[in-house]
Computed example of a mutant assay.
Amino acid sequence: METTQYDREEHIFTAFLDPYMKFSSGLFSSHETSFENSVIEMLDFLLDSAQISNGARVLEIGTGWGCLIKRLKERFPHATYTGVSPSAAQITYVREHVDQQAPIHVCAFELAEVQGPFDAIFLSGTFCHLQDKFLQLERIFNLLAEGGRLIIEDSFFRSRQAMEVLRECSARGEVQTAMFGWAELMPLSSLLDISESIGFHLVSCRDFTDDYERTGKEWIRRLAKSALSYPAKKDMLFYLRLANNGWHRNAYCYALTFERPRRVDMPSVLELVNKEA
């Protein structure tokens, strides 16, 4: 198996990430927001979007370097957390620096034997890595409690046309796969179609493209100034610059909140029509 960014040693990421080690967008609420605070604001936004409270049952698909569980434990120490990650390097980091008892399934979500129900499920930068997205979203729907929320923070193609053009760019695809692992971005409209057919209710959708672009520029600045040695520094700088160049041109970043509706015993439209007749 080829090494991707998820398998690289932590020192590469500590060279440019924030103390929470979040490898996706921050939230810059103003021009004065610092890089470090933007990460905390984004994590709080995600947790608040899921309506997390103490005692909540949380599943994270793709733990990364532990940013979500770290913030979750700070704000809601009595919430229960389950993670899924195929990266041994990241799981080791989480257990050494965040929570040594963190229950994490060491495999891809497609292979994880996870038992619900959960009050909230998070995919932060990991939805694009799911194989057979319809099947996995259907599974996620069934893992949620009624009224439970799914939070997806990820990149999406600007349009179907942009998707087709970029898929034909083999050089870009090779760079992405080498650094990022297998991923399949889709237009936002495709996700909305799939989620609607499964039965999800869309609660909110927020555009974070500008925030992610600003985050990427901060990563590049910090990495360029770091003492990280070559070739790791050169390779990561190339990837970050390539990725950050695509915002608005090819892709947008969105954070979406979906809900599994509660069952409501109501007559169907046909029944109401027949009753009125």
Rank of each mutant, 00 (worst) to 15 (best):
F156M: 04
D193H: 06
F180R: 00
G55E: 12
V203N: 09
H201K: 15
E196P: 00
F156R: 04
Q5H: 06
F156H: 02
C128V: 10
D48F: 09
V269L: 11
I152W: 08
F238H: 10
E113A: 15
A120Q: 12
Y212W: 04
A162D: 09
Q161C: 04
Y81M: 04
T14W: 04
E174Q: 14
L130E: 06
S190H: 06
A255K: 00
D235Q: 13
C253L: 14
F156Q: 03
Q100C: 09
A112L: 13
Q115E: 15
E164Y: 08
R206G: 00
E259Y: 08
E168S: 15
A162H: 00
A227G: 15
V84D: 07
M163P: 01
M186Y: 01
E74G: 02
F238C: 07
L192W: 00
F13T: 10
F238L: 14
H78V: 03
A227W: 04
F13R: 02
E9V: 07
F208D: 01
S53E: 07
M186Q: 15
T14H: 08
M21F: 13
E10T: 11
G173T: 04
P19S: 09
G173H: 01
A224C: 05
D235P: 00
P231T: 03
T33F: 11
L59A: 12
M266I: 14
D210M: 10
E113S: 14
H31F: 07
L135R: 13
V273K: 10
C107P: 08
A227S: 15
S53Q: 04
L256M: 15
N142I: 06
N250S: 11
C107W: 11
N244G: 12
L144R: 12
C169S: 02
I198M: 05
S226G: 09
S190D: 10
H129K: 10
S155V: 12
A108V: 03
K225Y: 03
S30A: 11
G125W: 07
L130W: 12
I61N: 03
E153F: 14
L72S: 02
A251N: 09
A120R: 08
S195V: 15
F127L: 05
K225E: 13
G62W: 06
Y81V: 08
L17W: 03
Y239M: 14
V273L: 13
E196S: 13
K22G: 02
L192K: 06
E138S: 14
K133A: 09
T126E: 05
L185K: 10
F76R: 00
L150F: 07
E60R: 06
V106C: 11
A50L: 13
E146F: 10
M1G: 09
S195I: 06
S226H: 03
I151E: 01
K22N: 11
N245G: 11
I104G: 00
A162I: 03
L46E: 10
A178S: 12
L223R: 06
L202D: 00
H248F: 13
H105N: 06
G26S: 12
E138Y: 06
I140Q: 01
I198D: 02
F35A: 02
K217H: 11
Q131A: 01
M179R: 05
S34E: 12
A178M: 08
A56D: 04
R206S: 02
I194D: 07
A145H: 06
H11M: 04
F156N: 03
V165L: 13
Q161N: 05
I121E: 09
H78F: 11
L111E: 15
E60A: 07
